[in-house]
Design a protein around this nucleic acid. Sequence first.
DNA 1: GAGAATTTGTACGTATGTATG
DNA 2: ACATACATACGTACAAATTCT
Lengths: 83, 83
Amino acid sequence: VDVDRGSPIAPYRQLAGQLRERILSGDLAPGSRLPSADAIAQEAGIARYTARKVLLLLREEGYALSSRGMGTYVAPRDRWPQA
Amino acid sequence: VDVDRGSPIAPYRQLAGQLRERILSGDLAPGSRLPSADAIAQEAGIARYTARKVLLLLREEGYALSSRGMGTYVAPRDRWPQA
DNA sequence: GAGAATTTGTACGTATGTATG
DNA sequence: ACATACATACGTACAAATTCT
């Protein structure tokens, strides 16, 4: 959960990549909870707006599912790309 | 408890400033109850989210203490800035 | 003790304005 | 023009603790 500000890759992509790896490696299993946008923002030292884009990207990719008031969770494997 | 929408200062900062002044002037003594987020929201005509930020800012500054179910209260003077 | 109301806490969704590269 | 980023604001929903009836 760390951002390299010198990198040409946008912070929200860096963070999404880190979570994606943890999902693919099994560190974060389907159904397990992902950090909230607020938590990501605070830990990474970025705005909530940007932290939201991290989760948004993972959702678009099929790795995460969100529900209002409940949080964001790792999606079932059959929703992942190339499944 | 009034918001100037034309002001460049964000509403939650305006409201926090008003409460801070009442605390510093002694109008609101340590231990006395501050209005709830819902009350602030309704009186000022803003969303609860924004009203919460008023109390949150005062907490961060050291002027207030909150606890779930109990409400938010003026903090002891030794918690205030420059005390 | 039971149940409702109150209040703070948490969380996602959405939108606007501003600023920077 | 565009993507990125931050600040602010509103809406909605659920959770947890306390207080009141």
